[in-house]
Design a binder for these strands. Structure first.
Lengths: 199, 199, 199, 199
DNA sequence: CATGAATGAGGGTTCATTCAT
DNA sequence: AATGAATGAACCCTCATTCAT
């Protein structure tokens, strides 16, 4: 076989990362073999291991990259400005960022948990931090009067689900993610719920 | 080693199923080995294959069992009776059923998707059916005036997330699932959302 | 391929151990592959790993076996009986035991040191113990008047070399080990050295 | 990274040889990687292969160098002069030379045999020559009356062991080699053995 | 002379599955 | 029904070597 054109270390690493991301998205961590990644990257085995320690290692890198992209979609809330609009904007931001990853978000939701104990714990830690942030925001909101009174811990988890699940379902259905429409739907739920108590 | 007491085929199958369920819950599909299951069941390799075709096969059986248990917690809505109360009751029902599985629900949420393509498709099909049901219910509710007007497809997915995520998070945090409190939190969101648009 | 006849666990283990011993003797630890062992044992890959954890693990087992065999050739000295004869007998004993291993002793001398740091340290520990024993014997002998006065630590090491080297050389030359003749030669050196100071 | 200062071919070769020697001494042939050598030499991969054909090749060069150094410690016996003193002097000479290599002698004793069949044969040939020389010396000595009568072949091998083993043991114990003391101990054994046949 | 990215054969290990008793 | 020894495909990873710049 002809030799792959030499690339600078960072370029090749990026190349492999992209290949891995696509392969993991398509086949899932366990069904994906290092060979699959090599094939997509157009590179020999050794090259892969010149840049990553192991299959597990690229996976972590892919995960970190994805988390970064998703998180890049949220901006801190400015309490001096009207809150609801900012929430809506953040929803749009995250969902757009997720949509921007193509089908790769599913890695965050599907595989990140099923790789091994360590992976699970890492993700649990990430969620813990994220949920605490949301919970504090809810409490602050309650103090400011923009958030309905009530329990906050479970609510925070619910809100996370509100965001994650439709994204996951779109991926499962092989539909493109309609960030705007979804942001509106979620925002609607946040503002008014769905159920009317009165007939 | 001493030979396991012969059991009737259904009993042995149940025995193995329970062992598998516990092992899958604890270690996840991929980290769980058939040997782990044998050990818990107290049975030799051959016996396992007398009752199940493959590791994949027990996993499907475990999944089916879990789905059955969870679904047993929901009752069809009677449109002649007040709707909101029935929704609340169903939430409690499903969540209690999930809590009743101990830590095994996580199998439904974690592994079911990451086993293989087939598993993913099976689950996708299941969700499609479930979500269509929810969507029809939403539309009916809108017609009846008990559900706020608006888009229903994404909303249905959001509602699913409202339910799944807190359960998942409890499992991740190794907390017992507080079905009642959670049902209340979710119901609250359904009825009123969280955000107040303006004071 | 036809299936190897099932053997009891200890029998199969012994079978594999013998195969490994022969392969290690012939090719050395590093050039020997697990496949070589399988071929000699007439068994499939999996069977090997049902009995040993790793290539390193069989090697340790082979080493332990060899050390046991060699050590079985020496009897503790009875100080109430004439010493020199007992020394001679022990020399014959060890050498016969070594000769009895065929060409496998070389494993002890060649590979045991070159496998890895741990192996080296294990062997160093073994030699430390053995040499301390010899040294104490020398000191006791000096006290009893049957051993010439003088430094004992280096001397003990020298005696070890007196034994090991000719065995090693015979293996290198692919000669059978002539235990009796060699025992005599060594004994001669112990008793009289070689060099006459006087012209 | 900064480019290594260009060196004349022989200088660079010497540089690499020294690096290899140190690495082989420290880690052993098999555990030593070419990368280890590069790191110590402060040179890139390609440079190494500009000066040596292969890892095996540097190893041979290291071996040759070591053998030369060790052999430089022995002077031919002058039969017109008193023999024992010359023997003693040669012992001191070889041992000093070995001590001069630092911990690198162990390469000669540990790895030289375990690299591959060819290496083993090369070493066997070397020993054959050396042992034949010793044996002829013994026979000449017997004719001259300075060596005790008796078998010479095994005796020659024993003498080799007398020299090698204590050196090896010192290396194993990470002790510096005490050339003088050891030469005395060996000389003592040559002259008088250790065992007294009768009180 | 020196560089370092790319290569790929080689080998070790795992584990679901089979099947004769 | 139950047993457990045997199987072997599937994979991951290492590292000596090549070669274009």
């Amino acid at each position: 076989m002809s030799r792959a054109a030499p690339l600078s270390a960072p370029d090749r690493r990026a190349n492999l990362l992209a290949a891995a991301r696509s392969v993991f998205a398509q086949r899932g961590y366990h069904s994906a073999s290092v060979s699959d990644i090599l094939e997509v990257a157009g590179v020999a085995r050794g090259t892969f291991y010149n840049h990553f320690d192991s299959k597990r290692d690229v996976f972590s890198a892919v995960l970190a990259e994805l988390m970064g992209e998703v998180l890049s979609g949220v901006a801190p809330i400015d309490v001096a400005q009207p809150i609801p609009e900012q929430v809506h904007a953040n929803l749009r931001g995250v969902l757009r960022a997720m949509a921007g990853t193509g089908d790769a978000v599913r890695i965050l939701f599907t595989d990140a948990l099923s790789v091994d104990r360590e992976g699970e714990e890492a993700l649990a830690a990430f969620y813990t931090v994220a949920l605490e942030r949301v919970e504090r925001a809810l409490k602050l909101g309650q103090a400011m009067g923009v958030v309905r009174e009530g329990e906050t811990r479970q609510t925070a988890r619910c809100l996370l689900g509100l965001l994650k699940e439709p994204v996951m379902q779109a991926a499962l259905a092989h539909e493109p993610l309609e960030a705007e429409a979804l942001a509106d739907a979620i925002y609607g739920l946040l503002v008014a719920g769905v159920l009317r108590r009165e007939a």
